[in-house]
Design a protein around this nucleic acid. Structure first.
Lengths: 233, 233, 233, 233
DNA sequence: AATGAATGAGGGTTCATTCAT
DNA sequence: CATGAATGAACCCTCATTCAT
């Protein structure tokens, strides 16, 4: 579940329906079957809700038989955990790769970070449904909370550092880096929620512009208001 | 379940445990019983998750018998819908009352609005769990989405208007009222999520400051950075 | 499960079919329902075997619904354990009561003991099926073995003592009390097996005569050969 | 599965564990594979109980793959029947060979018969578990009963005849041959049960002595009490 | 109005069996 | 021959709902 190349993630976005490439071939590799089932789980959570996601909805969505899940994941609980892991890992990987690609310029890095958060693969409504489904239950299920902590430990620190760097660079006396970082992170989550709940009134593009406007207000010498692109670059 | 007076909401914040005042009085009024059960439902969703909230967890939490819920709500589905309504209505009422109390000054109104969003009664972690539980399932359940739309139709329009007013008042050329409003609304939702998922790292106060910092950046002549209080007032 | 009067056991032998006295009355006492289900379990083990005894065969035999067993016993495993306990306790009680009734004469006591072992209630083929079903699995399931140990701790010691007493009384030089007791106990078990497996070739009466012949050979001055009745008494 | 030579049985007593000589040799003869699986079945019944013996426990015990059993036995039912047959045939063979070896002297023959019944190969706890597992289900499954009838048709008649002969030879007025034979057979079965259920309190040797004491009491001029050896011989 | 025993559809899981490799 | 992924019926159990009390 770890060594996805960036390309593989890219096509993984275009979800392969039940009768896709691998299809019902009697013998698919174990890894393929697992991924097929995880993707079916994502779709089922999105279209039925977590409460109404059953072994039957998942195996049905995958076009496979009832027993298949226990064969590959032992239990429903493990399937759900692996599904969450899958989405979390994918996000983390995307984010890390973006940071690698980005240069050392703080504004560029921050801009790249926003780009990733509103990347098509992240804002896929099915995956958003998964994120929020697990977040919702995280109070009741500590295991979920732990898995979701992906965003916090790396992302938050990085975000805060970038804000601090920009403040220093641009001499923004009024910016509190902590507050700025928290605000951006929260705004991003809130925009995800909007895209999930009312996709008609919130598009990926609109969401991205909203974040960039925020950055332009905080760091006007680094981010422009016009279409809120990063200045110069 | 609709005409809560403000007072009732006020005490509803201090959640009465299963054996509270009203308790098991053999003859509680219909309305009291219903509210008792709705509160038990909120607690159950928070501590068990929506998936694991059953008629038994709810009636157990309320300290009443199995059949009681069907007696008062006909079905589980109806109980859940009424619970969502309860939380939504409570929020809406709080918000409307704040608007009534507030003067006509736009900055003051906006400030009051933020105050409500981080009011203790709204940010109660149990209620947040309810909000997110239903938001999460809203893609699968149109009924939920409709009920949740409370925030949108009134709140959003009001928010947008206030931002537009401030822009005009303060001559903030760079502020796009729509974007500003969307950003604030999203940030608020994101901060709620943070309070739900990691209450240790996000307090109500911290959240409120984060929003105020946002406002200070957008409308510096109306909101101050210092402790991000509203200027003057 | 403990305070059966002797009479209650007596009629409990005549198993009440599904539509018996208690029948389907919507509200039977908890104890009645449990007993009804235990008796259904005994019948199911006898007619389907332990391997093929399912929740469905038991509840069907009892003329009740599927969920009833979990309602009263939590799990199938617990139902089986309680069923075993029921049979064991019933046997133990019968045996203890016989010992109380019997006088202090050792031969009479021994005779009474044999009478109990081939009492109609003990040799009921359904109950024998239960005994052997659990004995068979006792190697794999220590819990079963523990419950079955009823026979050992009281019965064996008593048996041994009676044989020792008779030896002393009758001056039977060649009798080894331990061996005699073990032999009688084993023979009894073997005869039970015969009654279970081939009831046509082994009747209760025949079995009892076989044991009495054994006693007559060991203790000729206490037991007679003719119809193997206890001598004089 | 029927024409075992004596030699094969002899080594079959020292059960070869899963990875034994024949082991996983890719090309084991059909007969070897079948025997390997039957032995695995015996072990599984003993250690898991008949209820919990599955295709997986058996193939696992044999160190082979899932499908192997259906390949060699078509169905689970047939595997079980063949396993029972295997144990039954082995016993019958042992017993017949003992009768062949023994001279024409009735006491010697009877003594030999007891020797076989407590032969190490017969009293193997795993095999006893198999016997009792099938006996237990025999009420529910006529097929099992038929297979188990091995003991009856030959053994019982032989036993009865030997008792009758001894009675004539020794002029034992009080011995009823039928009763004596039934008693011995039952005692043997009961002792087997004891060895199965509480091996610590009943050893093969103790069991054999118990039977011999029985014979000494019935036929004192043919069997001695001292260590219960056969007299003279 | 309230209880809680009872129901039975549907949940997750196991397992004998099949079949492509 | 042998494997083991896949199937689907049937298992045990849960839970929303009903109803006699």
């Amino acid at each position: 579940m770890n060594n996805h190349s960036f390309n593989r993630i890219s096509w993984s976005v275009n979800i392969v329906p039940a009768s896709g490439t691998a299809g019902k071939r009697r013998t698919a590799s174990k890894a393929e079957r697992r991924e097929q089932l995880i993707k079916a789980t994502i779709r089922s959570i999105a279209s039925n809700g977590l409460s109404d996601t059953t072994m039957a909805t998942v195996s049905g969505e995958a076009g496979l038989s009832q027993g298949i899940i226990n064969l590959h994941f032992q239990s429903k609980e493990k399937l759900l955990l692996e599904t969450l892991s899958y989405v979390v890992d994918e996000y983390k990987l995307l984010w890390e790769q973006a940071m690698e690609k980005a240069g050392s310029d703080s504004a560029e890095r921050l801009s790249e970070l926003v780009a990733v958060d509103f990347h098509r693969s992240v804002c896929d409504r099915n995956k958003l449904a998964v994120w929020f489904a697990f977040w919702s239950e995280s109070k009741a299920r500590p295991t979920y909370r732990k898995l979701c902590a992906a965003r916090d430990h790396g992302y938050d620190r990085m975000l805060r550092r970038l804000c601090a760097d920009l403040k220093a660079e641009g001499d923004y006396a009024n910016v509190d880096p902590g507050s700025a970082a928290r605000g951006l992170a929260a705004m991003t989550e809130g925009l995800w929620l909007d895209m999930l709940v009312s996709p008609r009134s919130m598009s990926r593009d609109k969401a991205k512009q909203t974040c960039r406007a925020y950055l332009a207000h905080l760091f006007p010498r680094h981010f422009s208001y016009k279409r809120a692109e990063k200045k110069i670059a």
